[in-house]
Design a protein around this nucleic acid. Structure first.
Lengths: 194, 194
DNA sequence: TGCGTATATGTCATTAATGTCACTATTCTT
DNA sequence: AAGAATAGTGACATTAATGACATATACGCA
């Protein structure tokens, strides 16, 4: 069980520590007190719920754990949407990028746990993208599934360059979701791989 | 996460606090409320985007004070290096991206104060990039200089779509540095525009 | 151009929340 | 176990929200 101190919360909300204590005292934020002098602790999920209830932004370090966000990079919007639908129904949060620029910036901005990458995008080489992801510290650990209609040799090359998995187009939805489940298991519930 | 109070914003916009609250209530400025009495907080990026959308000047302290980093997005490495040389000798810190993916991720990662953008990059439309930059809160205030060999009409369109300045290729180094100095004045020393 | 109306912004006093400070006590680190 | 870092407390200073109303400012229309 992960808990937060009032100081943690104060920093995250850009608010005075005093204020956080008052929120707790007033019962607006659920927390509990340690035996000693009554230092407060708040469970992460209570805090997240609190943020949600008040329409406050949720710091990404909190959604960072159990990060189940997937970035779909594919210039064919229809394909991207289709992938998105499948993954969302599998319980993942998805974002779509339809060109390299969006792909790059969303990757950095959201720091998704997994990326599906179309090898053949106009203007950029999927291999370069792979290399970039692997050599950039912020994204080196991001899992990458390369999706492409290219020949097996090209797919093998993608694996050599750091892809975690490849998927030949056209692909079966089940194949896709299996791959993703493999690379990015969901916490526990709702992941009934029936 | 850095946030602003209505009072901060009121001072920066030289406007009554009351008015800021109304902007938020009306949904024109994105913000959220603290639990207590509903004190408003606005994230800096959202505020910056708001300012930009309304063509309002962006206070120094928000546009990343001493940030003098420039991102050069150009697929012709030679051109990019040349621009880089000029700007570095002008006292700026530069980074080069030679494709859209790098461009996007370096933009988000480094949050440069200024971007030089080649309109004509393989696979991505410079206009799309412009729109993306302008509609993404984190980058809405980033100054953009579009550099292109395209006709005046295309350059005008770039201005319409949010570029802060355009530069026709081929260009003179002095033109470039003047433009940049104009959009991104260096703190003080060595910026003697004699 | 001038009028009237709608809408936006400013003002003021009041009330309530948040910030600050100095200090003490507790937890965390090593 | 000791020192460093962090959290709690009370009193008080600041600052924000609110309602009601005064002033703009913009806009439509004659």
């Amino acid at each position: 069980m992960k808990t937060l101190t009032t100081g943690d919360i104060a920093k995250m909300c850009d608010v005075n520590l005093r204020t956080v204590i008052r929120w707790i005292d007033r019962g607006e934020l659920k927390g509990f007190k340690l035996p000693g002098r009554g230092n407060n602790r708040v469970q992460v999920e209570d805090f997240v719920q609190f943020l949600h209830q008040h329409g406050m932004p949720i710091p990404q370090e909190l959604s960072g754990e159990g990060n189940n966000r997937i970035l779909i990079i594919d210039d064919e919007a229809a394909v991207a949407r289709s992938i998105g639908r499948v993954l969302r129904s599998g319980g993942y949060a998805t974002t779509i990028a339809t060109d390299g620029f969006q792909g790059g910036s969303l990757l950095m901005k959201q720091q998704p746990a997994l990326v599906t990458l179309d090898l053949r995008m106009p203007g950029i080489s999927g291999y370069d993208v792979l290399k970039f992801i692997r050599t950039t510290p912020e994204t080196a650990a991001t899992r990458v599934i390369v999706i492409s209609a290219l020949d097996p040799l090209s797919l093998q090359r993608a694996l050599d360059e750091g892809a975690d998995a490849v998927l030949a187009k056209p692909f079966d939805n089940q194949q896709l979701i299996n791959l993703v489940r493999d690379l990015l298991p969901l916490p526990d519930h709702s992941s009934n791989p029936a």
